[in-house]
């Protein structure tokens, strides 16, 4: 792996952490739903850095959280967050970033808004829920269906994040065409 790739992975992991310490970034159009800039990191990592670098950036970020750094927004961190109800979602994040990146990587030319959105939905929501929902079902001793219904509450926020990710990624790519 080239030095440039190592640097991009580390910097993006650090940026995701940095976005977590900035309070109060909420989205007015989502009816006051607090959408932290950090939580878009997974989708952005895949869409901007591609499969390998994007996935590894999120792995790196989560490793630092796991070893005890309070890097998740709200100052959360440590091994405990991986055992919480949303632990499965955290494990799904790097895989989701990888899949988004993979879909962007194999797309020839710039994907349209809709194509990009589909990629982000597949990786950032589809894949992440595939990890998160069974986990929730296991720790709470409920059926998969019940766990899925329980997770639906997060869906609107995730959809908005996906749209934002595409809009942001397009602007960034315009400024940095040969990333």
């Amino acid at each position: 792996m080239a030095t440039k790739d190592i640097v991009l992975i580390a910097l993006f992991a650090a940026l995701v952490a940095a976005l977590g310490v900035v309070p109060n970034i909420t989205l007015p159009m989502a009816g006051g739903v607090p959408i932290t800039a950090q939580s878009m990191g997974v989708m952005l990592a895949g869409a901007l850095l591609g499969a390998k670098r994007g996935g590894l950036a999120i792995v790196l970020f989560l490793v630092l959280v796991a070893v005890g750094l309070p890097l998740l927004s709200g100052g959360r961190g440590g091994a405990g967050v991986f055992f919480g109800a949303s632990g499965g979602f955290l494990f799904g994040f790097p895989v989701g970033a990888f899949v988004i990146g993979y879909l962007f990587d194999r797309h020839i030319g710039q994907p349209s808004f809709l194509q990009g959105l589909i990629y982000v939905l597949i990786g950032g929501i589809g894949v992440v829920y595939v990890f998160g929902v069974p986990w929730l079902a296991t720790v709470a001793e409920i059926t998969l269906w019940q766990a899925l219904v329980g997770s639906v509450a997060f869906l609107p926020g995730d959809l908005i994040k996906a749209v934002l990710t595409i809009l942001i990624a397009r602007e960034v790519r315009k400024a940095m065409p040969n990333l």
Binding site: V22, I35, L164
Partner: peptide, 8 residues
């Protein structure tokens, strides 16, 4: 407070 204006 704009996600765009900060993130981009």
């Amino acid at each position: 407070r704009s996600v765009f204006a900060i993130a981009i």
